[in-house]
Amino acid sequence: MLEVRELSTSYGAVRALQEVTFTAPRGEVTAVLGANGAGKTTLLRTITGLVRAQSGSASYDGRELTRTAPELMPGLGIAHVPEGRGVITELTVEENLRLGGLGRGGRVRPEELERIYELFPALADRRAALAHVLSGGERQMLVLGRALMAEPTVLLLDEPSLGLAPRIVAQLFELLQSLVVEQGLTVLLVEQNARSALSIAHRGVVLSLGRVVVDERADVLAGDDQLRHAYLGF
């Protein structure tokens, strides 16, 4: 269980997160929604220690994360998947994947790579290509596959649908859902695309100007016209 308690941080004078509190239960998808600048990406960056927390905590199974160095996250089973821009374009597809596997410690076995290529056949055809030739959808598959190489228990996903065609988004989310069911992953899904995110999420947490304004079951949130109009714009 991922627990965020009264987490606050700021960029200079701007309060980016103000006492954010919620829990993401094991084996469930928790969607973090809200407009641009609501603090969604900052939330993920603060949890994994890329941004320093001013107060409050984020812990996974009792282990404090915000004061742990980001490079220790893979060892704790936490995978922070940045937006598709997070592919290392100067490395090949396979090198990106191998790098993900190294994070867990130890060597990368060929069958681990094959498992990812089975999940994402589009990557298998391009394993020797530099990642900068990949399309937006393929890049999202690559960052997700790279995260899975470390065999994480928690996935922190930052805008996986950004810039993708609706058909690709549907495929990606379908895959994500099956991974959660099969592997019991705990997923924190940061999204602007609220409709798609709520379709696979168990809970929805809505951020506005760095505060939690709604924390509700996903089906309730999606079904409440007032909440939807007020915060999600659909």
């Binding site: 994994t48 890329l50 160095a69 980001p70 490079e71 220790l72 996250m73 893979p74 060892g75 922070h80 940045p82 997070g86 290392i88 374009t89 100067e90 490395l91 090198e95 191998r98 790098l99 993900g100 190294l102 994070g103 867990r104 410690g105 790279r146 470390a150």
Partner: peptide, 20 residues
């Protein structure tokens, strides 16, 4: 591979466990 990752993208490399 770790060295190249650290050279090309420090932040992503850190998140993947590389001691940059």
């Amino acid at each position: 591979l770790r060295m190249r990752a650290a050279a090309f993208n420090q932040e992503v490399a850190r998140l993947l466990g590389v001691r940059v």
